[in-house]
Amino acid sequence: MNQKEYPPEVQSFLEHLRAMERSESTIEKYRRDIQLFYQHLPQGGQITREATAAFKSALCAHRAAATVNSMLVALNGYLTYIGRPDCRVKLLRRQRRLFREQSRELTRGEYERLLAAAAHAGRERLGLLLQAICATGVRVGEVKYLTVEAARAGKAEIALKGKVRTILLPGKLSRKLLRYAAGQKIASGEIFLTRGGRSLSRKLIWAEMKRLCSRAGVEPSKVFPHNLRHLFARCFYQSCRDIVRLADVLGHSSVETTRIYLVSTGAEHERTLDRLRLIS
């Protein structure tokens, strides 16, 4: 089945997600996952419980459990939408991770090296963007809410996924944002714009961050916008030790999601085990 043959229900479902105010990146991911499912359907394209179970098995053979579950969530949502909840499949049961890979954790020192590299390269916008994300914990898709008006008020109202939350901007960050906006002759609205006056895309932000890696001496695997959000979460929690408050700041509906941000590294876990002093 080629792309032109996908049933109209797929596009209808994507429009439904858009109406539910899902982000464009989420909608695109759901599109890819659902189209992959249709590619796995046997000749004739009939959706059956056997077909969805076979798709799950195929995913399990080649992908990590977390990836499989994220794809099954997309599929199950689509099956419910088209009136086939009987074909939904169960997610894989996973033990909660005790620690995360050291190779993926961005440390405060590495973050500071990225800022220094941006300053040395004359990348004022990028350096300020890194600080804005890391000092507030906003998602990369929420950068557009960091406006001149928000900087003046010291807070940003973020409306996504049918929810509105208020993000407080540190005074020092607000002053930096206003100075930058004045220098760019931005009197109102979004502060982080391209030279053509458009919002910065995820792809552009990602690419600009990656280009800093070699200059900063930081592994590229650690440098992406969401890792700045993770660094913010760890620093915030270390300061207040209030996971419920942190969940509110991050915009999480469940504290369980927030816990993922606070998983320690393997090295930290190993130090905890050593402190038990159970080996003679």
Rank of each mutant, 00 (worst) to 15 (best):
residue 9 E to S: 05
residue 12 S to A: 14
residue 15 E to M: 01
residue 17 L to K: 00
residue 20 M to D: 10
residue 20 M to S: 08
residue 33 D to R: 01
residue 34 I to C: 00
residue 35 Q to K: 13
residue 38 Y to L: 06
residue 42 P to A: 03
residue 45 G to T: 14
residue 61 A to P: 01
residue 64 A to P: 06
residue 75 L to E: 05
residue 75 L to R: 05
residue 79 L to N: 01
residue 80 T to M: 11
residue 81 Y to E: 02
residue 82 I to L: 04
residue 83 G to N: 01
residue 86 D to P: 05
residue 89 V to R: 00
residue 92 L to A: 04
residue 116 A to I: 04
residue 123 R to N: 11
residue 124 E to T: 15
residue 127 G to H: 13
residue 129 L to D: 08
residue 132 A to G: 12
residue 133 I to W: 12
residue 136 T to F: 00
residue 139 R to H: 13
residue 141 G to N: 15
residue 144 K to I: 11
residue 149 E to D: 12
residue 153 A to F: 00
residue 154 G to W: 07
residue 164 V to H: 04
residue 165 R to T: 01
residue 177 L to W: 01
residue 182 A to T: 03
residue 192 F to N: 12
residue 194 T to P: 00
residue 194 T to K: 06
residue 198 R to D: 14
residue 205 I to E: 11
residue 209 M to T: 13
residue 213 C to W: 10
residue 214 S to H: 15
residue 215 R to I: 08
residue 223 V to H: 14
residue 232 F to N: 14
residue 233 A to V: 01
residue 233 A to S: 12
residue 233 A to F: 03
residue 237 Y to K: 01
residue 240 C to M: 08
residue 245 R to F: 08
residue 245 R to N: 10
residue 250 L to Q: 06
residue 252 H to T: 02
residue 255 V to L: 04
residue 261 Y to E: 00
residue 273 L to C: 02
residue 276 L to V: 09
residue 278 L to Y: 02
residue 279 I to P: 02
residue 280 S to D: 14
